[in-house]
């Protein structure tokens, strides 16, 4: 029971931190509103483009490279899902797990080499 309580209290703390993290900006911005001036004008509300009149819509299509990196991230980051538990339990698992993980990472590495050779990793 005590362990459970500690466990739950720990996450309660995390929750408290979340609340604080959200509250600080909210409160600060609210307080700021009472103090700061508010004189909007047309020019202030335009988008900044180094002083030139803004043209076109700004939400242009991103370069495709960004997506590719996002995909790479998804793949590699999720693979760590397997690496973390493995690393934690490595002591108990022993060589067996090492070899298994070696195969896994070699596959992962082949994936990296693939991306490399296909020039996916090149920026610009």
């Amino acid at each position: 029971m005590e362990l459970l309580n500690i466990y739950q209290n720990n996450y309660l703390i995390v929750f408290v931190f979340l609340c604080l993290g959200v509250l600080l900006p909210v409160v600060a911005l609210y307080l700021g509103k009472l103090l700061r001036p508010h004189k909007p004008s047309e020019a202030k509300l335009t988008t900044y483009e180094s002083g030139v009149e803004p043209f076109h819509d700004s939400r242009v299509q991103f370069n495709v490279r960004y997506y590719i990196f996002a995909l790479m991230f998804v793949i590699f980051d999720v693979e760590t899902v397997f690496l973390y538990p493995w690393a934690v339990a490595y002591e108990k698992l022993g060589v067996f797990a090492l070899i298994e993980m070696l195969i896994f990472v070699v596959m992962l590495f082949i994936g990296l080499v693939y991306a490399w050779k296909k020039k996916v990793l090149r920026w610009i």
């Binding site: 988008t47 483009e49 700004s58 960004y66 991230f73 980051d77």
Partner: peptide
Amino acid sequence: SNNKYSLLGGARATAQMISYEI
């Protein structure tokens, strides 16, 4: 922000952060 610099900056920042997170 609907600003070209911002968008580019945001995208760059994201790409960099996720790349280095690995």
